[in-house]
Design a protein around this nucleic acid. Structure first.
Lengths: 340, 340
DNA sequence: CTCTCACCTGGCACCGTTTCCACACAGGCC
DNA sequence: GGCCTGTGTGGAAACGGTGCCAGGTGAGAG
């Protein structure tokens, strides 16, 4: 466990010079730098980031708050964030925020606040103004992913527009009996993703002059969730929709499995479109609106580093809307004309 | 940004007393403690964990190295670890180790070593003796999950035994043409999980006196991977196996989807058994050997905290073998007798 | 009545860096 | 030759806590 003073001694220089040589800041002659580096290597010296943080006030550590780890979108975002941070020489401290309000408070009051992180990325969590203020009071840059947060830079796909696009795709194929299977409209944590997707869906129908009764079912955002709803909804051939806009690919896949099990042809009898670009979508031939969560994570890190290391002081507190790409596969097709 | 000295001043005590009052160590009168706490609350004071770490040498931060985030087993383990650590008041710093050897070195040489973490949990990574030594030289407790690591406490399921059990289940149902669809036998990072599962499989066959040619196919450990192999293997009814032992539930599910698509009845024409207890297994009626990765994560944290805070100095450097539970569902059944 | 001891408090050194400042020196310019 | 500027170096003061040690109580024991 050698310390800087040891290195300095071996190299025959002062602590200050050793520090400059190793950190690369300030003037050091090439000769001296080499000597210091050799000494450091010989001793197996590594800086104490703790000590460095104490004096510089920077930890090179970013906190990430995220509601799930175990869902495709979130895991993907997390991977994107992690890869970018590591590359930039930052650590990533992970806080999974469950719905437990006490835990959430604890993370904000106790963990995030102890000068442990230089900045925070909030994934799909609708921060309260109080929480935002708190972080801002600590001068910690903050970036949001997955929805708009007032006053801080954030990025997400345009949920309303994406849903509208998906629905219009189905409408353009001649479908009229269309159902949206999506998430809980009252979900607190997840911004208003679910309600926004419903909004886009409803808008598209309205604009097309189509009215559907029984146009929505709630499902857990998972394959199982979609499967359960699929079985429930698709049983009766007279009432079932001819097309479904699923809130995410996992739901769409669940519905697909249910449909196959019921012997319902896709896309001959039922068209399905999802949102996400989940890797399984390809395997199931699922038409979807693809987003790239990994890239979103990377982008968020960029925004953060701009604030952290950027020259200009102005944080762009705008909301970035990312595009989604309609990827047409075999799960959507023109509505089969009722044999007239 | 108030500091301890401010709190002390407001409360009218010395820094040492303020420190004792807030940390709860050492003697402080109730009256004084109250005054200090009030002052701290008033100022919105929070300790600088950096400063505290510098002097105590402890960071209350645990590093987790893990090869994937986006796979069920790993995400589940990670969630288990995270929940336990937070509860114990520890932070979790995440390092995803890809196959990139440079990055791996960098994480070990640069990140883990900077006195930033008190301990390390290694998930499904076969640490080299050198890496273990390095961490041990730093006196950092180390716990492994997912496989045996010599010299440190570790825990995992018994892969050989689990595979044997799965295979015996198929044998006991009368199957003889059994295939194992599993992971790359030469995978470096993942311990020897893949090869161990093959070993257990082969042992069971041998013990039963059954010989199978073409007994193994390699698949990516994912639903897509299983699906691809499923399509390739199940096409020819004369050569296809009557039962498949899949290396994990994701593979098993992929095969199931492929079989359904090919109109192959499960379990009438094909029995499938997996390993994991994946939530989707239930939906697909998949027989499996269930493990509990979340609980494994929690257990690993316990082992770690024992070393970190435990009174006794002896670290139990043994390897814990966790049981798996055979969960029989509808994907395995007695082999249909060839109509003789 | 003194001694011990448990309780309570303050002073101060210390953890291992970074960085400000002072100083030294060499070279180029007026 | 004096002066400025660009390099190179060392000394010492932070950064914000913790914890050792010393000192001061009052109560109970001998």
């Amino acid at each position: 466990m050698s310390i800087l003073a040891d290195v300095a001694r071996i190299a025959g220089v002062s602590k200050s010079t050793a520090s400059r040589a190793l950190s690369g800041r300030g003037y050091v002659s090439d000769e001296t730098r080499r000597r210091v580096e050799d000494a450091a290597a010989e001793l197996g010296y590594v800086v104490s980031s703790t000590a460095a943080s104490l004096v510089t006030g920077r930890t090179r550590n970013v906190g990430v708050v995220i509601p799930y780890i175990n869902r495709w979108y979130f895991a993907e975002v997390l991977e994107g964030i992690e890869a970018s941070l590591i590359r930039a020489g930052y650590d990533l401290t992970l806080y999974r925020l469950s719905t437990d309000r006490d835990l959430r408070r604890r993370v904000f009051d106790y963990f995030l606040v102890r000068k442990r992180v230089d900045a925070v990325i909030s994934v799909a969590i609708d921060l309260s103004p109080h929480e935002v203020q708190m972080l801002q009071a600590l001068r910690k840059p903050l970036v949001g992913i997955g929805g708009r947060i007032d006053g801080i830079p954030s990025l997400s796909i345009d949920d309303v527009e994406t849903a509208r696009l998906a629905t219009e795709h189905l409408l353009s194929l001649g479908h009229r009996r269309i159902m949206h299977v999506g998430g809980d409209q009252n979900e607190q944590m997840d911004f208003r993703v679910h309600s926004q997707r419903y909004t886009g869906f409803a808008q598209a129908l309205r604009d097309a002059g189509v009215t559907v009764d029984d146009d929505f079912r709630q499902a857990d955002f998972s394959i199982e969730g979609g499967y359960a709803v699929g079985l429930a909804v698709l049983g009766d051939p007279r009432t079932r929709p001819t097309a479904i806009f699923a809130g995410c690919d996992e739901i769409a896949i669940g519905i697909t499995v249910a449909a196959r099990q019921l012997g319902i042809g896709i896309p001959s009898e039922l068209s399905i479109i999802g949102v996400d670009g989940h890797p399984l979508a390809e395997m199931f031939g699922l038409t979807t609106l693809a987003q790239h969560p990994g890239a979103q994570g990377a982008r968020a890190v960029e925004l953060l580093l701009d604030q952290l290391e950027g020259t200009d002081a102005a944080p762009p507190d705008e909301h970035l809307l990312l595009p989604t790409a309609l990827t047409v596969r075999a799960s959507t097709a023109a509505r089969r004309q009722p044999t007239a």
